[in-house]
Amino acid sequence: MTITEPAIEPLGESVLVLRFGERIDLALNARVHAVAAALRDAALPGMLDLVPAYASLAIHYDPLAWITTTTWRSHDDEAEPASSRLAARVREIVAQVTTVDEDDGRLVEVPVHYGGDDGPDLAALAANAGLTVDDAIARHAAVTYRVAMLGFAPGFPYLLGLDPVLHAPRLASPRTRVPAGSVAIGGAQTGIYPSALPGGWRLVGRTPLVLFDASRPSPALLRAGDRVRFVPA
């Protein structure tokens, strides 16, 4: 596949953002995860965090790791800031990332109890889509989704791959409290609320899995780049 170079720009003093595009797209998102993996392996000095998003990637870093304090002069630094030095290294690493395997990624099965009290919006959503409830469940559970990114709240996965028939606008007035584990649809996306949160997505079911637990060695159940299948329970 042809690969476009990402635009690399500073977002403040200690974040560099790589922008690969401006749309929700499986191939673009896979590219984000491949570059994130390469950057993780490169273990550059001063790396603090990597945040993959749909079509962009943030590198949180310590700019002091990209200066030499003995020779540091503010004037020189403005001519070639720490962010430019890091960006040059990042460009080299990105150039090495040639293959993007879209099927790469752990497969996680998520049991879901669809409808009823666990998915109070499912019946209306199915009716609007011209489907029976069983058909809507079958379509939602038929896809292998990709975790595009985690955000909004700790451990909240944004999943790519929702059947267009099931696309549904967000609620006009969001719920003040969505129960933890709720599986929901917002526009073209589907996701799972990791904890009780306010939310405007339509609730179609609920999983007993704990999506985020800070006391676990790996707190978030799902990682960006994982593949997910819902299993009706």
Binding site: D49, L50, H60, L150, G151, F152, P154, P219
Partner: peptide
């Protein structure tokens, strides 16, 4: 620090 990728 270190957990921003998980939404923290």
């Amino acid at each position: 620090a270190g957990h921003a990728g998980a939404g923290v």
